Amino acid sequence: MNAVIDGLPEAIRQQAENLLAEIHRAGSMILAIKSGAQAYGFVQGLVCAGGISAEQGEALSEHFDKTTENRLKILSVGLP
């Protein structure tokens, strides 16, 4: 899938994949933004709890941001 996701511990990787899938499934801009915000909170929680390093958190957050931006671009032109 992605080196950022693949390098995570199994339980964290599974949840990250679920969050990415939610972003990809978002049927509106509001839902895409909401899903992106949930992903951001997930990353911040992991970093604060010591589940991942700050560097991993930054990389994961960037990946979620890019995915959200891409979904918003798709939705803005009216594609499903």
Rank of each mutant, 00 (worst) to 15 (best):
Q38D: 13
I30H: 10
R25H: 13
H63F: 15
S61L: 11
L60H: 08
R25M: 10
A49K: 12
S35F: 12
A37N: 14
A21Y: 10
A26E: 07
I74A: 00
V43Y: 08
C48G: 06
Q56D: 12
G27R: 15
S28T: 15
M29V: 07
V77G: 00
N70K: 14
A54S: 10
A3K: 15
A37Y: 11
S28K: 04
S53W: 03
G50C: 04
G7N: 15
T68E: 11
L60G: 03
L8M: 10
Q38S: 11
I5Q: 06
G50I: 05
C48M: 11
F64L: 05
R71I: 02
G45M: 03
A49F: 07
C48K: 13
A11Y: 09
N18K: 15
S28D: 09
L8G: 06
Q56L: 01
Q44V: 07
A49D: 12
L20K: 10
E17T: 13
D6W: 04
I5R: 05
G27E: 15
R25N: 13
I23P: 02
Q38N: 13
V47Q: 03
A39H: 06
G50N: 07
L75T: 02
L72N: 07
Q14I: 13
M1G: 14
V43S: 05
E58N: 10
A16Q: 02
E55H: 08
E62D: 14
G51E: 11
R25K: 14
F42P: 01
K73R: 15
A37R: 14
G7H: 09
C48H: 12
G36K: 08
E69I: 07
G78V: 09
P80V: 06
Q44E: 14
I23S: 01
S28E: 04
P80K: 11
I74D: 00
E69Q: 12
A59M: 10
I30Q: 13
A3C: 01
V4P: 05
G45I: 03
A21D: 14
V47H: 02
H24K: 13
P80I: 03
G51W: 08
G50E: 07
L31D: 15
G27H: 09
E10P: 12
E58Y: 09
I5G: 05
